[in-house]
Design a protein around this nucleic acid. Sequence first.
DNA 1: ATACAGGCTCGCC
DNA 2: GGCGAGCCTGTA
Length: 303
Amino acid sequence: MQRGDFNVLPCPDFDLAVTLDSGQVFQWEQHGGGFVGTIGNSPVYVEQHGAELRVTLGAAAHVERYFALDHPLGEICRLFPADPTMTAARDYCRGLRIMRQPIWECLASFITSSMKQVAHIRQMTRSLRERFGERHQLLGREVYAFPSAKKLEQASEAELRACALGYRAGNLLRTAQLVRAGEANLEAWRELPDEELRARLCGLPGVGPKVANCVMLFAYERLRAFPIDVWIERVLKQQYFPRARKLTPQRLREFCDSYFGEHGGYAQQYLFHHARKSTPRRRAAAAKRSRRRSAVVRKSSLA
DNA sequence: ATACAGGCTCGCC
DNA sequence: GGCGAGCCTGTA
């Protein structure tokens, strides 16, 4: 591939591979030395060489916005709380950026995410793209845009279930209907303050606080939004409340919002990625088993 | 093989 | 208004 076939743009403080592997987006696939995917309806190839990106001709502006290359990452990281846990995560995740995803695509993807691991989410959303999305050719490959709400609304629940969505199919379908009908005007919701936006999102089928916070963070640029999932909960309890006997979800929530502050979402993503990538699977599984064992022990000693 | 995942919802108390 | 079970499917 000739250099002239690409647009080149600078990307200081950015690590493309880490960002794409951090659990905020599920579509990008490796191709050659880079990745293929779509930004909105445009097929895009992007590869990183040090502090510059080479991208499909004409896509530079989209890429810059999508990957939030304008976020002042150095400053954001400097403002993290200066504790050992946060510092380790910051050093581990250098170049990880919170992206700006199209709202519907992000919302729909996270509706499918409940009780699923990243690999599953990738499969389900790829299946949705391949069956319902617009097809493009790029570098001899086929890439598919994420299907619009209108397109998904026309599907039957059975067709969505065929994408391995299980019980999530009904939620996705009903949310697509609300979006299509304009009852949920996702673009207009950009104007809402955080609390109201969260409330609106939580009013959609299949959307609770965790999913709502993901969508706020990854699509609505609400960098305070702090999704709490089982990984983050584990990290927070171990690192910040090692001896708390009972810590209610509400107290944990209050701690996150006040302690991590303005860029809490970034802090969350760094803690999350660090925990997920630096905890060997076997160790995580072993920890789980031992927790279960001790739960059994507690129960039997109660009886 | 068989629990169990990066949750949400509804029904029960 | 808090708590727990059930939901589908792929994976370890």
